[in-house]
Design a protein around this nucleic acid. Structure first.
Length: 840
RNA sequence: GCGAGAGUGGCGGAACUGGUAGACGCGCUGGACUUAGGAUCCAGUGGGAUAACCCGUGGGGGUUCGAGUCCCCCCUCUCGCACCA
């Protein structure tokens, strides 16, 4: 009687072994070839979810595989530990954010260890520790020195009732998430990082990324940066010295400008508008997308191109943050201007005609395409592209303005009116003004004694001990900055911190130059823009202050799909858990339930699967294997209860096969492997499997097909009946190979069975198997014979026949003769070693 | 609206540069072993016709000896951006 597969017993045994022997510890041995495998670190929200399991299972396969291939692999893990949920927990349950965070970390760390991921925990990074955030502050000071960090007034979401600043995700339908009061925009001085200084470089850098990043992510980065070329020029205000500077990408439509629009917060809007209450009303509608609203200032501007007097309006859809905060409006050729002109009865003048035909007036919508310029003085008759160029030159030559490039990308506002974050190392002194905290005084510690209420401007401003300080410059009384940093700052460089050991400072260039850049980064697409862009920005800043010698932090990026599951909905009780349903009816009210769509797992939709439950029921190996087998990594994965049973069954079969044959396997020597008539098919399959699995991992991270190949190998092994020592040598070769191939996917069971067949641990320290191309080749092929493109016969023929021989074989086939039936043959196509197509 | 991606058996998914569509798994059917089996093992499984055969990769055209794969048009779904002048 063989031992039954008991995942928990096996997994705990090997996890203990790995930990005791420090198998996952990565030496800083700078002479070996390196591989840096990084997965996005989690926010310690409480427990890991299936998204984490999938993400980290993918990363672990890559890390273990690369290690077996002989690389010195850096595979670290840490915690994105600052953030809002910790503060909410404090407000709701009275537990200190630090306590809440560290307890969550402890729990989740145990879960990750229980999954058997091969992390070097000695390099663990926790961003809320002073040793970590000290460097956030250090980078901030460096940026301040270089003029890359600056302070300016900006708007925040403000709840008048709670008297507090709200994050975007705390604004629900324009109201406060807690009290539903309407959220208003309040202006506060805040700190910004000048990412726009790197806009062009970040855009150019996208070229370099294309090799290793998914194209759609690169596109998203490009769009986010949003480069547009145009001109900036002044429109003088009639009867005054004032000028309105506008930006346009369509200088070819200048003659079609029939009014000018200012953003409601534009400085001239106040100056030019008589009716202040109306202006305030427009301001309150700023950025509301539903309806365009405007206000005529009563003043006019002069179009410098044709001297025309056109009205100046204030419009809610004009953004102060982009361009100059003012636009010329060409309703005939811009849909937004068109809608605005229609609403307020402003003139619409066509100045671009399509290449073919003529626009029908009055227009029903704006004609936005390029075309031929008309009604535009000396520029009439040119096409749009030519006109843009010539008008741009004209404007510059006459000092009316300049050709200009604008970016959609804006500077990064990092101030948060929050407690649980990195204090911004700045002091305000009555006599010296803004004074940076000297490096020697870092870190500016986050005080512990805080009461969080969720009210008031910034929690730190309540703590007298914290705010009151002395000016580093004059020694007089001064007050500290009370805002903390956006947590994206923490995640913009954490991958550097892993490179050095925990005791040392993070900016040792030797270690950084050896490990960086990250060879493979893995995470969700939700970070396709911000986190990745900020990291690319930080990397460049650090390069420019001489710490790094490259620009792109992540060479290859893999964005894994979401983990989804079917949802169930009761017409009365909403989303239901699977065990709230019996015979397709809700157990509460008996109504028939709707088996809903497959959606991303989320607690609110009650379609989650808890990793703890899976580990308990099936073990870590099965959980990992299924999440890698059910779909290719970048696609969404649909959860299936039967699917995981299948994965579990497979491991169980592998277990049984090895256990049943344990004695002969153990008593067979590894080499030589004797191939004979009886076992050559299996031997070939082994070589083919090594090839397939290796290529699937190496070339395209196709873990699902790699696993399928291992299942095929297993099927071959389990139907093999060894009858001689030679057979056993091949059997052992096959089992040994299967265990090695499977070990990155299911590390525990393979480690155990590795020992069962008489090998010594750890399987992770074994070299990856290699295949022999000659032995992987099939001696015979199945020749497909088509007549007029339809398969009519299949024949087994020796491999390596010439085209001519294949043609002869095809034409002499009895079945094929019937189809040809004496008709003349027009053509015969031979696909080498595969197929013959006879055209009649 | 713009941009990207995807539509293949009952289901998840295979199919490298155009060359046997449906690998592998799930489910289903039949059988074996069992007091029993929702455990395990064996066999079968795209649809249709009792066989030779016909039809099949969202729909419609096209290129080709040959199309899931290439080109054009259309439909559906998912994701991202969304007044960026």
């Amino acid at each position: 009687m063989i031992e039954k597969y008991d995942p928990e017993k096996v997994e705990l045994k090997w996890q203990k072994y790995w930990e005791e022997k420090e198998i996952f510890k990565t030496p800083n041995d700078f002479t070996k070839k390196k591989f840096y495998c990084l997965e996005m670190f989690p926010y310690p929200s409480g427990k890991i979810h299936m998204g984490h399991v999938r993400n980290y299972a993918i990363g672990d396969v890559i890390a273990r595989y690369k290690r077996m291939r002989g690389f010195n692999v850096l595979h670290p893990m840490g915690w994105d530990a600052f953030g809002l949920p910790a503060e909410n927990a404090a407000i709701e349950h009275g537990v200190h954010p630090a306590k809440w965070t560290y307890e969550n970390i402890e729990y989740m760390k145990r879960q990750l260890k229980r999954m058997g991921f091969s992390y070097d925990w000695s390099r663990e990074v926790t961003t809320c520790e002073p040793e970590y955030y000290k460097w956030n502050q250090w980078f901030f000071l460096k940026m301040y020195e270089k003029g890359l960090a600056y302070r300016k007034a900006s708007f925040v979401n403000w709840c008048p009732s709670c008297a507090t600043v709200l994050a975007n995700e705390q604004v629900v339908d324009g109201g406060c998430w807690r009290c539903d009061t309407e959220v208003i925009q309040k202006e506060l001085p805040q700190w910004f990082l000048r990412i726009t200084a790197y806009a062009e470089e970040l855009l150019q850098g996208c070229e370099e990324l294309l090799e290793g990043w998914p194209e759609h992510v690169v596109t998203m980065q490009r769009n986010w940066i949003g480069k547009s070329e145009g001109v900036e020029m002044d429109f003088p205000v009639a009867d005054s010295e004032l000028k309105i500077r506008i930006f346009t990408t369509r200088p070819d439509t200048l003659w079609g400008a029939t009014f000018v629009c200012l953003a409601p917060t534009h400085p001239l809007a106040e100056k030019l508008t008589k009716d202040r209450s109306k202006l305030e009303r427009i301001k309150s509608k700023y950025g509301m997308m539903e309806e365009k609203e405007g206000l005529f200032t009563g003043r006019y501007a002069i179009n410098p191109m044709n001297g025309e007097k056109i009205p100046i309006w204030v419009a809610n859809f004009v953004l102060m943050e982009y361009g100059t905060g003012a636009i010329m409006s060409v309703p005939a050729h811009d849909q937004r201007d068109f809608e605005f002109a229609k609403k307020y009865g402003l003139p619409i003048r066509v100045v671009i005609q399509p290449e073919k035909g003529k626009l029908k007036e009055p227009l029903e919508e704006a004609f936005e395409e390029p075309g031929v310029v008309v009604n535009s003085g000396e520029f009439s008759g040119l096409n749009s592209d030519e006109a843009k160029k010539r008008i741009g030159e004209f404007i510059e030559a006459h000092g009316l303005g300049e050709v200009k490039i604008n970016y959609r990308l804006r500077d990064w506002g990092i101030s948060r009116q929050r407690y649980w974050g990195t204090p911004i190392p700045i002091v305000y002194c009555d006599s010296c003004g803004i004074v940076p905290v000297p490096e020697s005084q870092l870190p500016v510690m986050l005080p512990e004694n805080v009461t969080l209420t969720g009210k008031g401007e910034s929690p730190l401003s309540q703590i007298e001990d914290f705010i009151n300080t002395t000016c580093p410059s004059c020694g007089g009384k001064a007050k500290r900055e009370t805002d903390t940093m956006d947590t994206f700052v923490d995640s913009s460089w954490y991958f550097l911190r892993y490179c050095t050991s925990k005791e040392s400072e993070p900016l040792q260039t030797e270690a950084l130059h050896y490990w960086m850049p990250v060879d493979q980064y893995i995470g969700g697409v939700e970070h396709a823009v911000l986190h990745l862009l900020y990291s690319r920005f930080f990397t460049r800043v650090l390069r420019d202050i001489g710490i790094l010698d490259f620009s792109e932090p992540f060479k290859n990026l893999l964005t894994q799909g979401m983990v989804c599951k079917e949802t169930i909905k009761c017409p009365l009780h909403g989303w239901l858990l699977p065990d709230e349903v019996e015979n397709n009816r809700c157990i509460k009210c008996g109504s028939e339930v709707q088996r809903g769509r497959v959606e991303k797992m989320s607690k609110s939709k009650k379609n989650v699967v808890d990793p703890d439950y899976l580990i308990k029921k099936y073990g870590a190996d099965t959980s990992r294997l299924f999440s890698l087998f059910a779909a290719p990594p970048e696609k969404d994965l649909e959860w299936s209860d039967q699917g995981i049973e299948g994965a579990h069954r497979f491991l169980g079969r592998v277990w049984n096969l090895v256990q049943v044959n344990a004695d002969p396997l153990r008593n067979t020597k590894d080499r030589p492997v004797h191939i004979n008539k009886n076992n050559e098919k299996l031997a070939r399959k082994v070589h083919q499997s090594i090839k397939k699995v290796t290529e699937d991992i190496e070339n395209r991270y196709q873990f699902n097909t790699a696993i399928a190949a291992m299942m095929e190998l297993f099927n071959e092994l389990s139907s093999f009946r060894p009858s001689s020592n030679e057979d056993w040598s091949v059997m052992r070769f096959g089992v040994r190979t299967l265990l090695l191939l499977l070990s990155p996917f299911a590390p525990h069971i393979t480690e155990e069975l590795w020992e069962v067949i008489g090998e010594s641990p750890s399987i992770l320290q074994q070299p990856w198997p290699e295949w022999d191309e000659a032995l992987a080749k099939e001696p015979e092929i199945e020749l497909v014979i088509q007549v007029n493109g339809k398969v009519r016969a299949k024949e087994i023929v020796p491999a390596g026949l010439s085209d001519d021989e294949l043609r002869q074989r095809a034409l002499s086939s009895e079945r094929i003769k019937k189809f040809i039936n004496g008709k003349p043959i027009k053509k015969v196509i031979v696909v080498k070693g595969r197929l013959v197509n006879i055209v009649i």
